[in-house]
């Protein structure tokens, strides 16, 4: 087999693999749309959810669609503010205490 044919064969196998992966992935996507999506939408409707539970570090990341657009500080004390300053400066150590040191009482009076 000449070298160009080997390369052609490699390219064909590669393309076929990509095509197979894409077809498989898209069929998975369709299966999800058919089976999971209706149930998940029901959940969204039932709980009136508006956002994805991806980033929990701050109001504006947990509910990006709901946040008031003016807040500079967030609820999570360890949360940095806007990128990239927050990735350079850490939160003060006093804010990173555990339950014992944060003065929390257990039990509602």
């Amino acid at each position: 087999m000449s070298r160009s044919r080997s390369f052609g064969a490699f390219t064909a196998v590669g393309l076929a693999t990509v095509a197979a992966l894409v077809l498989w992935a898209n069929s998975e996507g369709r299966r999800w749309q058919r089976e999971d999506l209706p149930r998940l939408r029901l959940l969204v409707t039932r709980l009136d959810l508006t956002d994805l539970a991806l980033w929990t570090e701050a109001r504006y990341t947990r509910h990006p669609s709901q946040t008031d657009l003016f807040s500079a500080f967030q609820d999570f004390p360890a949360a940095p503010e806007h990128f990239p300053s927050g990735s350079i400066t850490g939160p003060p150590p006093a804010l990173r205490g555990t339950g014992e040191t944060s003065g929390v009482r257990v039990g509602r009076p």
């Binding site: 749309q33 999506l37 998940l40 939408r41 029901l42 959940l43 969204v44 409707t45 009136d48 959810l49 508006t50 956002d51 994805l52 709901q66």
Partner: peptide, 13 residues
Amino acid sequence: EAALLLVGAPELT
């Protein structure tokens, strides 16, 4: 995924 899921969200908050 977000676009498909959040179709179930309330039309207005």
